[in-house]
Every structure is written in C-alpha cells, then in structure tokens.
Nucleic acid binder design. Sequence first.
DNA 1: GAGTTTGAAACT
DNA 2: CAGTTTCAAACTC
Length: 468
Amino acid sequence: MRRRCLDFEMVGARRKNLGDGSNSSSSMLSQSDENIACHDKQLVPFKPGGDSSRCILPGIGLHLNALATTSKDYKNVKHEDLSSGRQSYLPSSTASLHSPSNSQEPFLQSLATASSERETDHGENGAAPVEDASQASAYQVSDDFNQNSPKKKRHVHLIRYMRRLEHAGESDACKRCNCKKSKCLKLYCECFAAGVYCIEPCSCQDCFNKPIHEDTVLATRKQIESRNPLAFAPKVIRNSDSVTEIGDESSKTPASARHKRGCNCKKSNCLKKYCECYQGGVGCSIGCRCEGCKNAFGRKDGSAPIGTEAELEEETEACENSAVDKVLQKPEIQNNEEQNPACSLPMTPLRISRSMVPLPFSSNVKLSRASFITVGSSSGLYTSQKLGKPSILRSVPKFEKHFQTVPEDEMPEILRGNCTPSTGVKSSSPNSKRVSPPQSDFGASPSRRSGRKLILQSIPSFPSLTQH
DNA sequence: GAGTTTGAAACT
DNA sequence: CAGTTTCAAACTC
C-alpha cells in the first residue's frame, strides 16, 4: 500500500513538474524526482547548456539497445541521447532513457559508490543489470555508510570507479560501431540494432544510420521488423508470467532472464562474448542450440552455473576490497553492463507498448540506466523456472546477498539508513518492479526466511525485491 | 594494430 | 527450414 501510495505521489509530483515546469519537487521527492523531472525534460528537445544539462551524467552512457518499437512509434520523438549525443529514433517513452542528473558531484559520488558496491558484491558477475542509478545510489549510499566497511579503502575504489566511469563516458558510453559494409542498416550494426543513430565516434563507412537518412533508417528498420518482429526486441528478456505484472506486481513470480532466442554457439562453449547469452549475462536455456555449453551463468543442460553462487558468496565476504579491482581487471564481464545494454540497460517494453499498456510513468524511470525490464509477453518464450535452471541476474545477487548476509536484527538499521522514498530509491519505482525478485537460486530457498521477506516488503523503495 | 575466430544476421 | 554467405564484434597475437 505504502509503495503504491508513493508511486502515486511520484506520479503526482511528476505531473506537477510537467505541468508547471518547475523542477522543484515535493519534499518527499528529492533526487529521484529530480531525475524524473529530468526525464520529463528530456522529452522535449534538448538544449545544450540549458537546465537539462543537469540531466547529463557523463560517463554513464545509456544505450538504447534492444529497444524496440512499433513502426508507428518511430516518429514519436527523435530524441537525443544526452549522454552519448546520439539521437534515437525510438519512441519517446524509450528515448527518454537517460542518465540521471548530471554532474552533480554528490550524485556522481553516490552513483560511483553504488556501482562499486554493486560490483563488489557481484564480484565475477559484475555485469549486473544496474537498477535505476538514482535508486541504487541512494540506497547504496545509505547502505554503505551504515556498514562498518573501511571507508578509506572504499574511497580508493570509489575514485577508481569514478575514473572508470569517466573513461567510459568517453568510450563505452557511446558505443561505436565499426561497420564497413552494412551501411549500419542491418542488425550487424550495434548502433542500428540499438536504435540509435551512428555518431561521430563511430568508425563506420558509408553509414546510413544518420538523421539525414531518417527515412531510410526507418524503412529499413520496418522491413527488418516485418521479417522478424522481435528483431529489435531485447535480446535478453526477463521472464515473467504475464503482462499483468505491470500493473500488479503481486501476480508476478520469480523470473529469470534468458536470451530471447537462445544461442547457437559451437566453439565458444558459451564462455565468451561471442555467445549472446553469456554476453547478456544470462544462462543458456533449453532454447539454445549451443554445443558444449559451459555458460557460467547457467548451462543449457540445467547444471549449476559455474562460479556463480559460490563464487559470489566468497567474493562478497572475503574479497570485498578486491572486488572492484577484480572487476576492473575483468573487462570481459565487468563491461557487460556497458557493453551489453540489452542485458543491463533498460529496454523499451516493446511488447508492452505494443500491447498498449500505457506506462506513462514507468517508461521514463525504467529507462533510466539499467533497470532490467521485464518484457511482458516474454513468458511464452522461456520459462526458466520450468527448466529448473539457475538464473544469474546480476542485480539479484547484490540485493539478495545483501539481505541475506546482513543479520536480520540489523536490518532495521539498514532500513533506517535513509532508504526512504526520498532518497531517490523511489525513482526506480514502477520499473524496478520489473527487476523481478531473485530466483531461489541465490540461497533463497523456496521456504524463504520470513524475516527477510518481511524486511524486503517493508522497503517501499524496492518493490522488485519483494518476493511474493 | 593486424589478423583470426566466432556466431548472429542475412541470404539462397 | 536448412545450408551458405556475409558481417562485425570478440578475441588473439
């Protein structure tokens, strides 16, 4: 109830922002709503140097990968990706996906903290689909400072991570293609596949994926979609039972992510990024036709993922300090989040939009960096639960582990840790609902500890964590 | 940075 | 639908 009320509040506040153009939000809504306000602002043409600059977060590029749309949506908005400078020809709801507030140092810092924390906890699985940055940051910050972790060390890590972010802002944030023959009009082209125009950093040749060739782009896109309606859909989908989850989270069941089509790896053993499942940070499923699958995130045959759960546990507890370094040293996994937007970044609820489920609010927030979006109708594709396969959702271990490792009697402390709606956690709200609760794989046995459950439920900011 | 490997996408 | 070709990213050296 409280969560829903807060949602309404947010919506209300958001509308207010929309209405009067004021960026000031209610006292209840601080950062999160600023972000929302930013999102809203971003629905209008971006004016460099304007107030919307606040919404830019250098280094946290948001790829619109896997965003899909109906052809009729194409011209909704030609939106400029503020963080990358790209323009997206995706629908406004998806194009509004942007980094949270800009250069505000506190925010960056908190984000970095959050990210480093997350990666710390994720360890090997650093490619966690990041929740809404503001959400994560707000939560993580409070979380961080409520723990007894050595802050000096973290500060070092923080700085490192910040640098990495900065660097990412110059490179990864703007994913560059290198197409030579496809004219960037085929799915070979990452930019095209991601629904963004190629921009200067791209090394493509004879590129047609530019605003000046908008018609061509859209026509081609349409053609590809006609051939394969899911061509631009997220490759990695969150499995959920139904679209109804959108409106009623209580109906959702634990879900896992799976590649929508499965891979077809022959030689990589699904252990390299050649494998789309692996690249997307998901396990292979029965739908995969891979051979010799050793996918670390879950094998096709359903055997336990390699070096995931146990490793995570160890890393979290024993290697906390080295985790960031480890992540830094392991770009292969570490960059999943950045390199594979389809996996970690917010995706347009293509099927949602197609099913005409209005998500006026969630679409904005969800699109902020990296919330894992559940594709409503994806249930028909894979039902990993049925497969009994482990699911490694990188966002999951973080929270799951967090709640697991923290003694329950400490939880109130954590809750006190400003995990209030005003911390910005809220900003993830409806979307984060799609960050489905972790599977039982991560220690959450079917008979979950009621204590944790209660706690989770009592955190309005993390509806997605609520396990039903 | 060049060359190779890989598997998805596109084509037949 | 299966086999083949094309393609660009991932990877290796």
